[in-house]
Design a protein around this nucleic acid. Sequence first.
DNA 1: TAAGATGAATGACGAAAGTCATTTCTTAGA
DNA 2: TCTAAGAAATGACTTTCGTCATTCATCTTA
Lengths: 211, 211
Amino acid sequence: MKIRVMLVDDDQMITSSLSYILATDSSIEVVTSCSNGREAIDAIKNNPIDVILMDIRMPICDGVSATKKIMSLYPKVKIIILTTFDEDEYVYEALKNGAKGFLLKNVSPDKLIDAIKAVYNGNILIHQDVALKLTSMLQIKKETSWDIYGLNDTEINIMELIAEGLSNKEIADRVYLSEGTVKNKISEILHKLDLRDRTQMAIFYLKGGSK
Amino acid sequence: MKIRVMLVDDDQMITSSLSYILATDSSIEVVTSCSNGREAIDAIKNNPIDVILMDIRMPICDGVSATKKIMSLYPKVKIIILTTFDEDEYVYEALKNGAKGFLLKNVSPDKLIDAIKAVYNGNILIHQDVALKLTSMLQIKKETSWDIYGLNDTEINIMELIAEGLSNKEIADRVYLSEGTVKNKISEILHKLDLRDRTQMAIFYLKGGSK
DNA sequence: TAAGATGAATGACGAAAGTCATTTCTTAGA
DNA sequence: TCTAAGAAATGACTTTCGTCATTCATCTTA
């Protein structure tokens, strides 16, 4: 049983070179090529497909929404997103929508074939450079440097507690300051961040420092 | 140049069987075995390591915090987390902390070796079953159904506006209700969600419906 | 049509939250 | 030792929040 692959890219060059590459492996069979997401969704109705190699930026129906649609209709299909360097934002979205692999378009032939097999086996595989960006994205979410807003340690600490939903009294108990002082600190933070109240502050914090 | 691998697991059986498996591949060399995260952090000081296979649940220093620590000290090291079925929560944390691979402990020898190589090459690889849980986790985070908390459309709408940091007056203007009514609605929501104030509500919303 | 449910509004109230001027306490440094 | 700077505290005050009982209007359905 060969792995049945579908290619989706609006650039004819890409699809033909990919199918040329994939033809070299006997366990892979390229079944169809489509030039946009709409076509892909139609084409998959008539063909059972195992793995889709999908461009992320396409006219008519882009890779992210096509992924979403296809995953809802055919959850067993494994979709590998082909991306270039400058399309970070989409990656996270596509992953959420159920894409199973992420490769840069300039991937080497053997790595491409490895990836298809890994994904076919149910793994999620994210290519080196994409992985770098993804982890850095996640890490940015994890720890923002609040120093740049001129916040000191106590202030950051208090902000964290506000983002946990504590009241001033509760915060005061935690940081061993009087409730009044906590209020003052909060006023200070709000000024520095140009925010209005504790709720906006919690939101700001949880979003990693962006309004 | 062989890939230098470190094993970290408190179960002697696991480390010895893993090193037995890995010995079969000529491009991999098991350098050390440690029985907890603390030891691993110490051991890595003396040995240059490429890939770490790390258990997630260990005494003294668990896999997640060890990953965090090691990634901050030696960002080039690739860490593969070994997990069992019932440890979902940790996976997301570990990924955020820079782990590059996720495998179930019962992984087959050849897949284990493939995974080490893939991760060594900079890819992120997440094993089938772990991937399943991870994507379902991400999908849950994507769209929470607030219905289950008994919230109707207006209430959800108001909650969203609170999570944007609006005041009651501002919300009232947006939804064409009086400020008083908005207050009442908010009281209602707080009861249904068992929360205390608007800040906790914003947090709850932004976290996708989990305290 | 009457009874009952539902959604919106009101006003009154207490409790937090946030602001600000001022005072007290600490501590590093002349 | 004295003092100037900074952190913490205080008190007084305004505003906003959140709660609750009650009213009003509308719509359903027995």
